[in-house]
Design a protein around this nucleic acid. Sequence first.
DNA 1: TGCCTCGATGGGACTTGGTCTCATCACCCT
DNA 2: AGGGTGATGAGACCAAGTCCCATCGAGGCA
Lengths: 177, 177
Amino acid sequence: MAAALDLFEEHGYDNTTVTGIAERAGLAKSTFFRHYADKREVLFDDDTLAALLVEGIGAAPEGATALDALAHAFDRTGRAVFTNDRREFSARRIAVIAAAPELQERDALKERGLIAAMVDALERRGVPDLTARVAAELGALAFRVAYERWGDPAARDDFDQVLRRALVDVRDAGALC
Amino acid sequence: MAAALDLFEEHGYDNTTVTGIAERAGLAKSTFFRHYADKREVLFDDDTLAALLVEGIGAAPEGATALDALAHAFDRTGRAVFTNDRREFSARRIAVIAAAPELQERDALKERGLIAAMVDALERRGVPDLTARVAAELGALAFRVAYERWGDPAARDDFDQVLRRALVDVRDAGALC
DNA sequence: TGCCTCGATGGGACTTGGTCTCATCACCCT
DNA sequence: AGGGTGATGAGACCAAGTCCCATCGAGGCA
């Protein structure tokens, strides 16, 4: 993954071959595809996030609203996954993805997966379907906003704080619609 | 596009080759790629939707809130693009996309594009950034819900009615978060 | 020590998506 | 009749992704 990120930065996604990535990492092309389903996946292989979110939503206090359950899950998840030593990496990753449509595509799909997982977890709490979908969508938006803000080198707060703040901002903005 | 939809239904997306699609349509492979940027794009080549939405948002009455502007745009757009004779086609298209991850990926990216266009149009009306993002996200959700409901063969209403209804539902659900 | 198993890797053949170039063909204009 | 022009066909070519088989190294075991 590190080799891929380097090469994508240096030559662009399109001008980087899987053979090149593997070579740089000291592996064969076939070994690359044994670890990643395809070239895009090399920047998206994290499944732990969804699992943690689902668990956190399930563990939220009984009477919490949908967005409160999300806030609870975010608090438990944020700092665990996005440690401060990954901040610089996140910024580089965001920049590379923003420059390659194929990576944006994968990013959008992964986000859909996250949203679907959140909707599932909310519905298991008894939240009605459409409410769950709206809440998950807003949660995902807050997450994206937080990820961008946190990736800023000038930012100093931990991810969970940034995320909580973003969720409040999104909720407030939603009240103005 | 018709040839592709047929073959995707019959053999699945993965087991359909571009050569096969072109053959069925009486064309050469190179001609296919002259019309569509890639194999996925054959089901997503519609740019008019975004343009109509942007225009509709710009034309909404001055004092309207963000979601009201979206509702206005939806009213002008709905029936123009999604005529009743395309209802069956939409249902087939949805089913094919749901069965192929690569198509879902493209679908997710196109939706992001639509959202970005709506955010732009809203910001040009003076709507603050985060409010615009929330509104566009909710609008996209309403759009997706409406597209699904409208594709149901049992549905009888025109698309713009279904869409308006979906937007109200989403707004109500948002109030419960 | 020698043998065996097993998971991870390397290597290479093969299919398909996608790009590019060149030739051809139909049509239109004068 | 001739010459431009835009759409198409044909095929070479590259890279992504699949598949199969050979190899290697780390234990486990007699």
